Amino acid sequence: MDISGNTIFIPGATSGIGLALALELKARGNTVIIGGRRTELLESLAAAQPGLDTVTIDTADAASIRAAAGEVLARHPDLNVLVAMAGIMRVEDWHQPETFLADAEAVVTTNVLGPIRLIAAFVEHLRSRPAATIMTVSSGLAFAPLRATPSYNASKAAIHLLSESLRLQLADTGVRVVELVPPAVRTGLLPGQEESEFAMPLDDFVAEVVGLIESQPDAREIQVERVKFLRYGEARGDYDQVVATLNQADPHGK
């Protein structure tokens, strides 16, 4: 993926990593469209950032995804990058099924079905472009589990293998599949995470990500240094230690 000259749609980009990445990519000379559920917030962001386009989308709703895709492509027929950013994280206690099941189902709907539906809505168009990119967003927790968030861990492991599989299937097209693998970042993904000493500062994360995109345009995975402790535990042979350290140091994912 080139660092500039793209037309990029990032649903789930009204806050956190999505918004910070959108603004940085816009500053690098890309046309950027962000999506989110709250129309008033989108309007406020567009007013504060001239040139930033917006579209209302609920990535947990299949009909909303189809409608938003039609709107984006009608306004931006040169779209060549989709960043499937939207995701949620919930703490679950599986000792008490009545307390976690609704949260677990919401995580799977948003984090797994959401990206699948988004990619399905855009892949035909992206295949028509001479050079296009689908960027998925997994997590270091796809490779080492946090005890408190079973469904989130599983959803991100699913995204990792979805990315690997789509890359194989789309190898005969002009569509590249790139997987962004964040560590814990200081966002509002969980209560208290924005102040967590264990999480990476958001500005530092986005700066490193953009630097990696620029220096490694053919990368399959975008991995900041901080995530490699989780990403490669099994390959290094210290997986059990990684899992123990992760859960001892940060038992609530904060």
Rank of each mutant, 00 (worst) to 15 (best):
residue 1 M to E: 14
residue 5 G to E: 01
residue 5 G to L: 05
residue 6 N to G: 09
residue 9 F to T: 05
residue 12 G to W: 11
residue 15 S to L: 09
residue 15 S to Y: 06
residue 16 G to P: 04
residue 16 G to V: 08
residue 16 G to M: 10
residue 17 I to C: 01
residue 19 L to E: 03
residue 21 L to K: 07
residue 23 L to D: 03
residue 25 L to T: 04
residue 25 L to I: 08
residue 25 L to R: 10
residue 26 K to F: 09
residue 27 A to L: 07
residue 29 G to V: 04
residue 29 G to F: 03
residue 30 N to C: 09
residue 32 V to K: 03
residue 32 V to D: 01
residue 34 I to Y: 05
residue 35 G to M: 00
residue 37 R to K: 03
residue 43 E to N: 11
residue 44 S to Q: 13
residue 47 A to Q: 14
residue 47 A to Y: 02
residue 49 Q to L: 10
residue 50 P to R: 10
residue 51 G to Q: 07
residue 51 G to K: 06
residue 52 L to Y: 00
residue 60 A to V: 00
residue 63 A to C: 10
residue 66 R to G: 12
residue 67 A to S: 15
residue 67 A to R: 14
residue 68 A to D: 02
residue 69 A to N: 10
residue 70 G to L: 06
residue 70 G to D: 06
residue 71 E to H: 11
residue 71 E to K: 14
residue 71 E to P: 01
residue 74 A to T: 06
residue 77 P to C: 01
residue 80 N to W: 07
residue 80 N to C: 07
residue 81 V to T: 14
residue 85 M to W: 08
residue 85 M to E: 14
residue 86 A to H: 00
residue 88 I to S: 10
residue 92 E to A: 01
residue 93 D to L: 00
residue 96 Q to F: 12
residue 99 T to Y: 04
residue 103 D to C: 05
residue 105 E to F: 05
residue 107 V to Q: 05
residue 108 V to S: 11
residue 108 V to C: 05
residue 109 T to C: 13
residue 110 T to D: 02
residue 113 L to D: 15
residue 114 G to I: 00
residue 114 G to S: 00
residue 116 I to V: 15
residue 117 R to A: 06
residue 119 I to N: 01
residue 120 A to L: 13
residue 121 A to L: 08
residue 132 A to K: 08
residue 132 A to M: 04
residue 135 M to T: 11
residue 135 M to P: 09
residue 139 S to W: 03
residue 139 S to Q: 01
residue 143 F to R: 11
residue 144 A to D: 07
residue 146 L to Y: 03
residue 147 R to N: 09
residue 148 A to C: 05
residue 151 S to H: 05
residue 152 Y to M: 04
residue 155 S to E: 08
residue 162 L to W: 05
residue 163 S to I: 05
residue 166 L to E: 06
residue 171 A to N: 07
residue 174 G to A: 11
residue 175 V to Q: 00
residue 176 R to L: 05
residue 176 R to Y: 03
residue 179 E to C: 10
residue 181 V to N: 09
residue 185 V to G: 02
residue 185 V to Y: 00
residue 186 R to D: 06
residue 187 T to Q: 05
residue 189 L to P: 08
residue 189 L to H: 08
residue 190 L to G: 02
residue 191 P to T: 09
residue 192 G to C: 05
residue 194 E to C: 03
residue 198 F to S: 14
residue 199 A to I: 02
residue 200 M to A: 03
residue 201 P to W: 00
residue 201 P to S: 01
residue 207 A to P: 06
residue 208 E to D: 13
residue 210 V to M: 01
residue 211 G to Y: 01
residue 212 L to D: 07
residue 219 A to D: 08
residue 224 V to A: 11
residue 225 E to Q: 12
residue 226 R to C: 00
residue 227 V to N: 00
residue 227 V to H: 01
residue 228 K to D: 12
residue 229 F to E: 13
residue 233 G to W: 12
residue 233 G to H: 09
residue 234 E to S: 12
residue 235 A to W: 14
residue 239 Y to C: 10
residue 240 D to T: 13
residue 242 V to W: 02
residue 243 V to E: 13
residue 243 V to G: 10
residue 244 A to L: 14
residue 244 A to I: 10
residue 245 T to L: 12
residue 246 L to H: 00
residue 249 A to N: 15
residue 251 P to S: 10
residue 251 P to L: 13
residue 252 H to Q: 15
residue 252 H to Y: 15
residue 254 K to Y: 15
